[in-house]
Design a protein around this nucleic acid. Sequence first.
DNA 1: AATCGCTTCAACCGCGCCTAC
DNA 2: AGTAGGCGCGGTTGAAGCGAT
Length: 235
Amino acid sequence: MVRQPSWDRTCLKKGTWSPDEDQKLITYIMRHGIWNWNEMAKYAGLSRSGKSCRLRWVNYLRPNIKRGNFTREEEETIVQLQKMLGNRWSAIAAKLPQRTDNDIKNYWNTRLKKGAVENNSASAIASRSEINSSLDAGEENSSDADSSMFLNNLLDSPIPTLEDFPLPATYIFSPSDCNRGAVVDDNYTMEDNFISSEKQPQPMSPNSQLWLHDPIYVRDSDYDPVDDFWVNPFF
DNA sequence: AATCGCTTCAACCGCGCCTAC
DNA sequence: AGTAGGCGCGGTTGAAGCGAT
């Protein structure tokens, strides 16, 4: 039932993504959006499973991903939310929309968890805050009360919308700059490494007006406007 | 310079949920 | 109602990087 089609299991590449593969996936999504990961992978010319493509996009290639060091506030948020929610990384990531759940999970497992187990989480924060504040003398230390207030504000705050993450009209995504977030790369065009649409079967028309106005994955029960942004960041 | 051990993090795996048929 | 396909989530793995010896 959960098993993938045999084609996926026998013919698909695994392991680290090459820059060329990144570029193919980005190019395809820029042109057609996200509609069916398994089919998209084939049409984009990728010998990857849909799951692999989705993971690569969500965790690495999508726009506005913040990478690099976590700030003290982010760290406090993660610790507090983990205390409240447990290992529900996607829920925690929802409050840090520029961080991926995988990033948060890794960060927790490799850095915060140790401190949280050894001491309690508050003292872990304090000790790490000292380190961070020594690195960033411009910020002041926060007390537990401040931390609690911050968390309450966070939980009460609305989830960001598209307008909170504006993209320039000339926004072009370059695989080589993925780690640094949004950039404009004049040398990169969407046509690079792209399979001609004439050669592709079109089980549906991703460029149709229907697609543009009716994004998939939107569920009535838990519709979140920020999802629109992540699904269709370029439209 | 070579080796070892530790850390980090990208990627995979398996499972469960949701939806369409 | 049952089944299949697709997606999302959390746990885990393994390669790469880096410092210590």
